[in-house]
């Protein structure tokens, strides 16, 4: 169970701790037929382009923005012992074709590198895959898949810098002679980058969005979707991450379309790289109801 506070309520209240106005109940059924009392998040319909490239745009602010309390994932091992990010602001906009989310949370420093014992920051929004019923919060369940769009700090850095962090940056005094690619044809040289050789989407060198789309049917089952359509951008400033995640409302790939005028369940997870978060070591907010304006 997680608390949700509207920005409006928060601003009107005397203090953060005194203004909790509702609680999302895990396992509540979704559906426009019976509007949810816990429907705090509103995906406002806007005309014109969505500010996906500007996570700090004032367009993201509004009554529909929601503060979601985060709890440590402790249902599956390895678990997160304690949260380092207690809450995340979430807002959403759509233009009838694309739905976009903006998440923002406070963090002392940014995690933008994948290295040895060094982890990236990330945020993911989770939506139901094949029905509007709330799937299990455990990343769905067999037969009840969830659609996850995860933004990664390290992928953002790749995109912003136009390159990947490489070994000489971590170990500047390392000396090496030839690399396989200097000696062998590409098809052979790639064998010494095994993740790349087998086509692991994490290992590829191609330019990509900082957001990865995944399908899951339970913990440990995340699968990279063959067609990646999500986009987004993350900016770290003033001790906060401001991150957008956008995806087509006609999702395709066996996923139902996100239609306006309906309530949709949405859940969020946040990873703090500097706190050692990765995989199941995450903090998350339980399913919330999101009204996608008609």
């Amino acid at each position: 169970m997680s608390d949700a506070i509207t920005r409006k309520a928060l601003l009107a209240g005397a203090g953060v701790g005194a203004v909790a106005v509702g609680a999302f109940l895990a396992g509540c059924g979704g559906g426009e037929e019976a509007p949810q009392k816990d429907a705090q998040l509103v995906a406002r319909r806007v005309d014109g382009p969505l500010p996906v490239d500007d996570p700090r745009s004032s367009a993201w602010r509004g009554d529909g923005e929601t503060l979601l309390a985060l709890v440590a994932q402790q249902a599956a091992k390895p678990a997160l012992a304690q949260v380092s990010v207690p809450d995340v602001w979430l807002s959403a906009l759509h233009d009838g074709r694309t739905i976009a989310f903006r998440a923002s949370w406070a963090q002392e420093s940014a995690g933008e590198v994948d290295s040895l014992g060094v982890f990236h920051d990330a945020v993911a929004v989770m939506l139901p895959g094949t029905s509007r019923e709330r799937p299990a919060i455990t990343m769905g369940a067999p037969g009840a898949p969830v659609h996850i769009a995860q933004w990664r700090g390290s992928w953002q850095k790749d995109q912003d810098s136009g390159r990947r962090v490489s070994v000489p940056e971590i170990y500047p005094n390392y000396v090496r002679d030839l690399t396989p690619s200097e000696l062998l044809p590409p098809r052979t040289a790639v064998l010494w980058a095994p993740g790349r050789a087998v086509g692991n989407p994490l290992s590829g060198l191609e330019e990509r969005s900082p957001v990865e789309e995944l399908l899951a049917e339970g913990f440990g089952s995340t699968t990279h979707l063959p067609r990646q359509q999500a986009s987004g951008r993350g900016v770290f400033a003033d001790g906060r991450w401001w991150v957008t995640i956008a995806m087509p409302m006609q999702r395709g790939q066996g996923l139902i379309d996100i239609l306006g005028g309906l309530y949709w369940p949405v859940a969020v997870a946040v990873w703090s790289g500097p706190a050692g978060n990765r995989g199941g070591r995450k903090q998350y907010a339980d399913w919330a109801s999101m009204l996608v304006e008609a």
Binding site: D114, S115, V165, V167, A193, P194, N200, L202
Partner: peptide, 18 residues
């Protein structure tokens, strides 16, 4: 796996990120 293997014989590749 890197954290759990007491012999530390799993290693992370920062180029392929696995």
């Amino acid at each position: 796996c890197v954290a759990a293997c007491p012999y530390k014989k799993s290693m992370f590749n920062i180029e392929t990120r696995v």
